[in-house]
Design a protein around this nucleic acid. Structure first.
Length: 741
DNA sequence: CTGGTGACAGTTTTT
DNA sequence: CTGTCACCAG
């Protein structure tokens, strides 16, 4: 019986995947190449634990890096273990840590209603501290300082333990200390704190740690190559002596070194758990052999990696295309034109095409081209919804209602919309509050008390301790009344009602809708927020706000990658990780752009660029285009760059039409890429489809082969599809047709 | 207090 | 060429 069920659950796995999923006891490391089905292994292992090994879902924790990945895992598990899913802990490191911290707040120097500061808030606070310490923010740029602090936190180095390696870091050390104090005073944590505090908690409190260790018998972690020291430490602490730690990763796809990720954790894992089992998933289910060969050629030049090679049963497929455009405009022209061609020839749909670039700035010209051609596109990333000024402003109000001690948030919106509280007043309150050692909000409360007592009892002659003129007092108190009213309203109103009150009482509409198009745009973002909030309408008033804020601060962009709309996708190579497309265009393949010139200095950095290229290439299922320009506008000036070294690393046999635009034959630049493409002896391949075969296509669905004809290097198959797609002529190498038995 | 001006720097960003 | 920030004049 049990055996039978096991068959059911794991039968869809290949032998390597299955072995990994079945290795129940002890530490397991799975090195999983792109497209090798790692999520599948993770989910099936969980299903196996629950359904075959009778492990309580309550005792399992699965950690991911993105909410998207967590969501996807949940969705897949739903079909495997059904409603048992709800007892399972699935989430991002940060979300799981935030939950733990709220529950265990009493053991820490923080209230359980703490707010989570995002990058923006963090930078504000840093700037404030720099000011406080009279540090020049030219030498100590907030971004750099913050970066240094963040790195320290990722390494679990506290301000006390921080050992500055140079004079510059001496200052960082001081800022770090103050910054941390400020966070505590604001009852706030930054992203890094979420991890660091939990690790401190676990290390400092054996009882608490044991409670969690007793609960979680099995820990699984995705994207292990992207863990930083803090995250790895957490995994180890939670795992404890039981040792059931299952991690899946791929060093070749580690692209977040600059954020503290350390793929050497993969090596460390094997040292820390010498008895761990290692599984390699090298079969790729995504790409053509040709694309995998290209990817291999690029990644294999990295020194620090475990040698491995992907293989596939997919057809060899078409050669990849390398194209030189004159400039970024022609580049965009070429790419959109090519996509148009693919779509009109019925090879794929718009949504099967993606354009990837190294830096966000490159998206502009592409967007232009799409717009001019009237082709729909979706842009991933850009200005994230929750990062938009107007959205953040409104959110700051909500956060203040939740936690009025959040001074950064308070300072953000105390004069938004403008209500006459300017710099001078702010400095006065801030100084006074600092002097008294109280939060800003408390200072306002004292001010009101002072005001009240003056009015009530004229006898009481309070010292004129408050250095404000009448006007400042008045505007400050008006604001306090507003805030307190909102705080009071929270108890009795639903979240949407509360949001309406904020908008109304603060006069947001009038402030934002200033008559310009941009104003309308911003207002529609606020309205968008309003519709998000509707989803929390049914929650009890008391908890709705808490839940909402938690979701918002840990959710990056809502997956605006909805699969429904048919549009091409524009995204950075970084955000492309984990996705796949029929056709991938990587643009800006030029020295200085990709690899980015910031990576020229250090070998390690360059290796990361190379991994990034590998990630990009392996997103493609069937078609891959690498595009570079002869000259490009960068920061407003024209530069001429060499084609990317990554292109040079690809053997010519893997590249098809390298079409130099004819109009430019006069161009006086001997491109190192003017190869002569060797003309291969045409060979006719053996047909693999014949009339009457039933076949399956990724996008067109099921169909019947009408005719099939071999041509040079490929096979042209005519298929009548069952649904609306009708009759299509397809190239066997590209279409990914599968026969149905 | 507000809005305007000039200097300046400028990857990537799962949380 | 941007966007951001500090600073200064109304």
């Amino acid at each position: 019986m049990q055996k039978h069920r096991m068959e059911n659950i794991l039968k869809v796995l290949n032998p390597a995947q299955r072995q990994a999923a079945e290795a129940v006891e002890g530490p397991v490391l799975v090195l999983a190449g792109p497209g090798s089905g790692k999520t599948r292994v993770l989910t099936h292992r969980i299903a196996y634990l629950v359904r075959v090994c009778s492990v309580e879902p309550y005792n399992i924790m699965a950690v991911t890096f993105t909410n998207k990945a967590a969501k996807e895992m949940r969705a897949r598990l739903e079909t495997l273990i059904g409603e048992q899913l709800k007892h399972l802990t699935v989430g991002t490191f940060h979300a799981i840590c935030a939950r733990i911290l709220r529950r265990e707040a009493q053991h820490l120097d923080i209230e359980s209603n703490f707010v989570i500061y995002d990058a923006d808030d963090q930078k504000r606070l840093i700037r404030e501290v720099l000011h406080e310490l009279n540090l020049d923010d030219k030498t100590y740029r907030p971004a750099s300082v913050h970066n240094a602090i963040s790195r320290a936190k990722n390494e679990l180095i506290s301000p006390e333990a921080y050992d500055p390696p140079s004079y510059w870091y001496e200052a960082v050390s001081r800022v770090y200390g103050h910054y941390q104090k400020s966070l505590t005073a604001n009852n706030a944590l930054d992203f890094d704190d979420l991890l660091m505090k939990v690790s401190e908690l676990f290390r400092g409190n054996e009882t608490v740690l044991q409670r969690y260790q007793r609960r979680y018998h099995f820990i699984l972690a995705d994207e292990f190559q992207d863990t930083n020291h803090a995250q790895y430490t957490l995994l180890r602490l939670l795992t404890g002596k039981r040792g059931n730690l299952f991690v899946v990763g791929d060093e070749d796809q580690s692209i977040y070194r600059w954020r503290g990720a350390d793929f050497r954790n993969v090596l460390r894992f094997r040292e820390d758990y010498p008895d761990s089992k290692l599984f390699l998933l090298e079969q790729n289910y995504r790409s053509t052999q040709n694309i995998l060969d290209v990817a291999h050629q690029v990644i294999t030049l990295n020194r620090s990696r475990v040698p491995k090679k992907l293989w596939t049963q997919n057809p060899r497929g078409q050669k990849i295309v390398v194209f030189e455009a004159y400039d970024e405009h022609e580049e965009a022209q070429y790419v959109t034109g090519e996509i148009q061609r693919l779509v009109s020839q019925g090879e794929c749909r718009l949504r099967d095409c993606a354009i990837m670039y190294r830096t966000n700035a490159q998206s502009r010209v592409l967007e232009d081209a799409f717009m001019r051609k009237g082709m729909p596109y979706k842009l991933v990333g850009a200005t994230r919804f929750y990062q938009r000024r107007e959205v953040k402003d409104v959110l700051a109000y909500l956060r203040l209602i939740h936690n009025p001690l959040d001074t950064v948030g308070l300072q953000r919106i105390i004069n938004v919309p403008p209500r006459g509280i300017g710099r001078k007043t702010m400095v006065a309150v801030t100084d006074w509050a600092a002097q008294e050692g109280i939060p800003f909000y408390t200072a306002l409360q004292l001010l009101r008390e002072d005001e009240d007592s003056r009015r009530d009892t004229e006898k009481v002659n309070l010292p004129p301790m408050l250095p404000f003129d009448t006007r400042s007092r008045r505007v400050l108190l008006t604001f306090l009344v507003l805030l307190d009213d909102l705080i009071a309203a929270r108890k009795t109103n639903s979240l949407p009602e509360l949001l309406d009150m904020v908008l109304e009482r603060a006069n947001f509409a009038r402030y934002i809708r200033n008559g310009t198009d941009e104003g309308e745009e911003r207002w529609s973002n606020v309205m968008e927020l309003h519709s998000v909030v509707q989803e929390y309408a049914s929650l009890p008033a008391e908890s709705a706000l808490t839940v909402f804020l938690e979701d918002v601060s840990l959710v990056s962009e809502v997956d605006n990658l909805d699969e429904k709309t048919d549009a091409a996708t524009l995204l950075t190579l970084h955000t492309a990780k984990g996705l796949e497309f029929y056709a991938v265009f990587i643009v800006g393949m030029e020295e200085g752009v990709f690899p980015h010139n910031r990576s020229f200095g250090e070998e390690e950095e360059m290796e990361e660029e190379r991994r990034l290229c590998y990630v990009g290439i392996t997103r493609a299922k069937s078609k891959l285009y690498l595009v570079y320009t002869f000259r490009r506008t960068l920061y407003g000036s024209q530069v001429v760059n060499e084609p990317s070294r990554f292109i040079r690393d690809i053997p010519k046999q893997l590249i098809a039409g390298h079409h130099p635009a004819p109009s430019r034959s006069t161009r006086n630049v001997p491109s190192p890429l003017r190869w002569n493409i060797p003309v291969e002896a045409p060979k006719v391949i053996k047909p693999s489809f014949s009339t009457g075969d039933r076949v399956q296509h990724d996008s067109f669905g099921e169909g019947v082969v009408v005719s099939s004809k071999s041509s040079v290097d490929d096979e042209e198959v005519t298929v009548a599809f069952v649904g609306g797609a009708g009759i299509k002529r397809l190239l066997a190498s590209l279409a990914g047709l599968k026969k149905i038995e």
